[in-house]
Amino acid sequence: MRALLTLIVIATLGWSGYWFVGQRGLEQAFGQWFDTRRAEGWVAETSDLSVLGFPNRFDTSFDDLALADPDTGLAWEAPFFQILTLSYRPNHVIAVWPDDQMIATPQDKFRVQSTDMRASLVIAPNTALAPERATLTAEFLRVAPLARPDDTTALTALTLAAERNDGASYRFGLSAEGLSPSTPWRARLDPKNTLPAQLAGLRADMTVSFDKPWDRTAIEDARPQPTHIKLDLADAAWGQLQLQAAGEVSVDAAGQPTGEITIKARNWRDILDLAVASGAVPESLAKTLESGLSMMAQMAGNQQTLDIPLGFRNGRVMLGPTPLGPAPVLHLR
């Protein structure tokens, strides 16, 4: 009995020592990270940094957190942020965001409000801290520019999942429920107010290859840039309108895509009417475009469904030999 008691005491002291060493190591590592960012010209401030959770957790909390990268113009402010880990499984991390935070880009500043926004990350057990898989969820999400608080985009539920395949290739899954477009965006897209206030759903499944893995250098140095995108399926439903997309593009160093994405549009005439009403398609071209698209639908065997192959080349979006406009630049700041 005495030997067992001695063993328990030794194990308890050993575990306590491990926890307090780990606590001290985390506090020093995060403090050094903030010091290094400030030396590089960042804004990197927190009013309090603490590690609690003895004996089975390392719960790191930051109060009044402010980060700003002068090279990209990106900034983030939050009243608190938490990184929660089990002391016996330190590479599995839970990140918890506040219900109210601010994100700034070179173009605008946004207020982000959410309910139970958190992420689960499994990180590679090395100093690069590269996520192997991650899931971000929120029961409610609202984003609005600070200068235009009524210009609000909201979701009732969000799930974003990512898993590293190999090297710098990642598979992403997105599910967004109850998407309510902002009032100005809706007014431009649906000026006659014929569609419901919310999209029924938005889903996407894709694999993206980058020029380097996502790890701690993505914050400290530069964001990885996409080099190849394989869109297995994107699906959006808004009232009687439904769009699906699939395809594959390569992305060069300038962010220009080359490849093809096929759009499947159900009730495509209604979509064309919206495009004309919003001014995206000139009214003078509506009849000509409707005749051409109708012929394409008839050739496919379903007049209500239209398959539109969009080509991306030389910085342009092409419908067959016809240029539709400039291609999006796929570059992460």
Rank of each mutant, 00 (worst) to 15 (best):
P328D: 09
T217D: 06
M102C: 03
G14W: 12
P79C: 10
M299D: 01
P131A: 08
L4A: 15
V208H: 09
M299P: 01
N165S: 12
T159K: 12
L86C: 01
K264V: 15
M295V: 05
T137A: 02
G201A: 03
D252R: 04
Q23L: 09
V43K: 05
F34G: 08
T207F: 02
L5F: 15
L121Y: 01
A124L: 09
S294R: 09
L74D: 03
I263D: 00
I10Q: 09
E248L: 13
A3L: 15
V122F: 13
G325F: 09
A128T: 06
L241K: 02
N56T: 15
L330H: 06
T183C: 00
P224Q: 06
V251Q: 03
D59K: 09
L136V: 06
A204I: 09
I271D: 00
Q303E: 14
T159L: 08
G31T: 10
F80G: 07
L86A: 15
R269T: 09
T227C: 02
G259H: 02
P321W: 14
R111M: 07
L285I: 11
T46F: 05
G279E: 12
R171W: 00
A204Q: 13
G17C: 10
E260F: 05
H228C: 00
Q107S: 12
R333S: 14
G31S: 08
S291N: 10
N267R: 04
L7H: 06
L129P: 01
L274K: 02
N91A: 08
V43T: 15
L179K: 06
S209V: 11
R269D: 08
E260D: 06
I94K: 11
G25F: 02
L129V: 03
Q32T: 07
R266D: 13
G31C: 05
A95M: 14
G201Q: 04
V208N: 06
T36A: 13
V93W: 13
D211L: 09
P257V: 03
R269E: 12
K287C: 00
I123N: 02
R333D: 11
T153Q: 06
G22D: 07
G292S: 11
Y88I: 12
G247S: 03
T36L: 11
E45Q: 11
D63N: 11
A265V: 05
E248W: 08
E248M: 12
G41T: 03
F210T: 06
T36N: 12
P181Y: 04
R313G: 07
F172R: 09
V122W: 13
R133I: 01
N56F: 13
